[in-house]
């Protein structure tokens, strides 16, 4: 992670290898010099200062770190930053437009689909990946799609309702 703290620690050990990666994050090309072992989640959080991607379990189980990687949900806590070189990444910061919320965000607020909010960004991005390919999912399809994302607060029922809420609104938008 040598590049991340340059302003703080100008002196760096010379024998640490560094690779340059270029990633399109939320539509914007970003480059960084990283240690090969740096995890993508840490590059996003500490390097690019996008702290909406949370690290929960460090082992690909909880899904708090979920981002969309070329449109597909992946757990960024167990992907190396160098593996993302040349790819497209979407984080929670990219979900809303400048002026308005994404229907998934509106749905989570309206249906009380979150409590502590820690799992929420990953949950919403997984929901987006589902709705991108299946705009009219059943409750079972939503539950299955979200089964890689853990939530300790809500009991999931309101999360499912939130995604259904968003699906209705998105279908309405598509029809217009």
């Amino acid at each position: 992670m040598t590049s991340l703290n340059e302003e703080v620690f100008p002196e760096q050990a010379s024998d640490i290898p560094v690779r340059t990666v270029t990633i399109t994050v939320n539509g914007e090309k970003r480059s960084a010099n990283v240690e090969p072992r740096l995890l993508l989640a840490h590059l996003l959080r500490q390097g690019f200062k996008m702290t909406g991607t949370h690290t929960g379990c460090d082992t690909t189980n909880c899904g708090a770190c979920t981002v969309l990687f070329d449109g597909k949900p992946i757990k960024s806590c167990t992907m190396l930053a160098v593996q993302a070189d040349g790819h497209d990444v979407m984080t929670i910061e990219g979900l809303a437009s400048a002026s308005e919320l994404h229907p998934i965000q509106e749905g989570f607020k309206d249906e009380h689909g979150l409590q502590c909010g820690f799992c929420t960004p990953g949950m919403m991005l997984t929901a987006k990946a589902l709705l991108d390919v299946n705009p009219n999912p059943t409750e079972d399809e939503i539950r299955w799609a979200l089964s890689g994302n853990l939530c300790r607060c809500t009991g999931y029922q309101n999360i499912v309702k939130s995604v259904l809420w968003a699906a209705v609104k998105l279908r309405g938008q598509a029809a217009n």
């Binding site: 959080r45 996008m50 702290t51 909406g52 991607t53 949370h54 690290t55 984080t91 929670i92 910061e93 979900l95 809303a96 919320l101 965000q105 989570f108 607020k109 009380h112 979150l114 909010g117 820690f118 929420t120 960004p121 919403m124």
Partner: peptide, 16 residues
């Protein structure tokens, strides 16, 4: 919820 306005945008302020 008021707090949702930041959480749904990924703008919560957790310890890390």
């Amino acid at each position: 919820r008021v707090e949702d306005n930041r959480f749904i945008r990924g703008k919560g302020n957790y310890i890390d």
